[in-house]
Nucleic acid binder design. Structure first.
Lengths: 213, 213
DNA sequence: GCTTCTATGTATAATAA
DNA sequence: TTTATTATACATAGAAG
């Protein structure tokens, strides 16, 4: 293992030049990821602010955590992107984990808190779970969910799926705060608010989100 | 207009500190956009290479051109993102311009070259144009196309739309090279290949794309 | 997994092409 | 719209919490 030697009378060798290739050391890789992710989001933010451009950045960490930044919002930019000729676009493949039988419900890949609401919601969940199961079954190995629809779903099921998606979206909108289970690590957003590297979030409706799954 | 004054004997004042807010001057804004977009993509590339993270960056220029970068690919990352709990995901809203009546066909926002193929394709285009018209009509003012489906489309039309989407996607896959009308400006991809700031495209399957629409 | 501290590598503002 | 130059602002490697 290489050890840095300080020039006489110095406490640090300062930034060293590195090759742009995978960092072998796991700890170093993680630290670099954190630092550079922050830098990337800051750059994205500045680009949007300075030039009025729309920007979306999505990053999956080595540990598979998701970090995203967008202006005016991640979804707005990605929706626009999806409509660009030639860009097949990102459509939810909806991976469903094996049922755990715990308190929470996994529907279409969305983790719903069990402490949700009333009987109506519970019923809706059950119905959606059924639809989801069929959808997932139908789209095994396919890239776009509409392939599953056409190939394996009847018209009725298709309609049901679309309805489910809509309800799901509404649900997410209503309960966004409680549903987005921000487990470990602590929300970066909160950290940003009390630190130097903020992205002028409130003023320009920039977004910086984080989720683990 | 402010003018920079060189220190005696100097040819440049070097980089000046600027405030991170919209640049008023149009030319300066454009120049800054170009430079910082390159910088952003480079940072994204380095992050992916150094840490093994998956990264997707989508940028719309002030002139509404699309620039995207992704590792291992933009779509792969966005698909993953779409499946993250809480992320409503990006689904094509499919904006359709006013029909021009020219040689080319606008279907679901995709510009299809008229020199396409045989009668079968032409028929398909006609069918899809019909479907597209109804879809567009149905989704006016809505954010997600499935809202249109549920609210204004019958089951038959819904199925038709899904089928149309599938055919459309296949079409794009087959004729990608001829369909993606790369009008002005010249494809940056080609420029990158003969310039300094490349992103090690071949070796690691990084992608850098550009489209106007 | 994030942060702090140095010292130094890099991105980029201004300008002109 | 993109690039070249120059001098400077900023990002970040390394080491250690």
């Amino acid at each position: 293992m290489t050890v840095m030697v300080h020039p006489l009378g110095r406490t640090s060798m300062g930034r060293q030049r590195i090759e742009i290739r995978r960092i072998d050391n796991k700890e170093r890789r993680q630290v670099t990821f954190t630092k550079r992710r922050g830098g990337l989001f800051k750059k994205a933010s500045e680009l949007a602010l300075l030039t009025g451009a729309s920007v979306a950045v999505v990053v999956f960490s080595p540990a598979k955590h998701v970090y995203a930044f967008g202006h005016p919002s991640v979804d707005a930019v990605l929706r626009s992107y999806a409509s660009v000729p030639g860009e097949a676009a990102a459509v939810a493949p909806v991976p469903v984990h094996g049922g755990s039988g715990g308190e929470d419900v996994d529907l279409l890949g969305l983790r719903l808190a069990a402490d949700d609401t009333g009987a109506q919601v519970a019923a809706e969940h059950a119905r959606m779970r059924d639809v989801a199961a069929r959808i997932v079954q139908a789209k095994a190995g396919r890239r776009f969910w509409w392939e599953a629809d056409v190939d394996a779903l009847g018209e009725a099921e298709l309609l049901e799926f679309v309805t489910a998606l809509k309800k799901l979206r509404d649900n997410v909108g209503r309960h966004a705060n409680t549903l987005l289970a921000p487990q470990p690590p602590p929300l970066p957003l909160q950290q940003k608010q009390r630190r130097r590297r903020h992205f002028d979030l409130p003023k320009f409706q920039l977004w910086y989100t984080h989720n683990s799954f």
